[in-house]
Simulated scan of single mutants.
Amino acid sequence: MLSWIAVVLAAVAVAVVTWVCLTAWGAVVHGNPAYALVLGATTLLAIVGFALALRGARAAKPLRVAGRVALLVAAATGIAVVAWLRPYPAVEPALTAMRTDASVTVTESPDRIVFLPSGEVSSTAVFFQPGALVDARAYAAVLRPLAERGHPVVIAKQPLGIAFLALGAFDEARDAVPDAADWVVGGHSLGGTVASIQADESDGTAASPVTGLLLYASYPAGDISASLTARVLSISGTEDGLATPEKVDESAATLPTDTEFLVLEGVSHAQFGAYGPQAGDGTPEVSDDVARHEISEASRLFVDSLTPD
């Protein structure tokens, strides 16, 4: 009986990997390689498990029942985690915004996307942490206008789509844009929470300090109201079902007293990027184009205000 359960789990594991590849292939290929490695390891383990289960059934020499049950439970849990980690793939207009043209050069590496202005380059650069499980390319359309304005932009590609696994990404971004005199650090949802940590740690540094924190539908995990000296802009939406208006209001006390709060009417959580609907989110009351323009323009004005003349 346990051997057949193992066979079924192996089949489910292969099915999950196939589903992820069919529905999120672009996000897997263009994302941090950690998840692709997990998918490969899952497939390999499924094949090995299938072979061992069949051999065990023929030989009638099963492992101790308790041990085999524990392995099956662990396997089922692992499969569930792999399925949960499936990224939200970027959709248009983000994919078009990833193209290099006369105004912006776009480059990708395994751990970041970089937008470099082709003309005059500002001394203020932007580093951005995506929301949990969201394809980093999904923020290309909303952040590209900052690069068109002259600000270098670096978007982190987080291992497994989790910002807490990319705590060192900001230091790597500094290396990618060595001429930046100061930085605005931002993020969406969980990415904003981690960006708050990074901003709080780096706003007092002598070289390439953080002068601004840009929160998209997000708030800090702890109280940084007294320690953070950088200016803060919090942009949220009235129809956000995840970082709800109530949560944003409750978290206001954890930010500096001069934080600017911009609440956009009709905007939902997923409209801060371009990756389709998200479970648990509210229903937007404005178009994606309207939401993106409002978010992008507010971001541009904020970053411009921090840039020396």
Rank of each mutant, 00 (worst) to 15 (best):
L165P: 04
G150A: 11
S123A: 06
V91M: 03
K157N: 14
A132T: 11
G168R: 04
R112G: 12
D182A: 15
V121G: 01
V106H: 06
R174F: 08
V134H: 03
R99C: 09
E120I: 06
A132C: 06
A136P: 13
L165A: 10
A90Q: 12
T124A: 05
V153N: 00
A140P: 04
E120Y: 02
R112A: 15
V126T: 09
L167M: 10
A141S: 08
R144H: 01
Q129Y: 12
E120W: 01
V91H: 06
A181L: 10
D111C: 13
A173P: 14
V154M: 10
D179F: 15
P117N: 09
V126H: 06
V184H: 05
L160V: 01
G192L: 08
R99K: 15
A156S: 15
P110W: 00
A141K: 02
V91G: 01
F164M: 14
E172L: 11
S122H: 10
I113C: 02
A156E: 04
L143N: 07
L165R: 03
E148P: 04
G191A: 08
D111R: 13
L95A: 10
L133S: 08
L146A: 10
A132N: 06
P130I: 03
S103Q: 12
S189L: 06
Q158N: 15
G186E: 02
E172F: 00
R112Y: 02
V91R: 01
F115D: 01
G191W: 03
S189G: 07
M98I: 09
T107P: 09
V185A: 04
S189H: 05
L146W: 00
M98H: 09
D182W: 01
W183I: 10
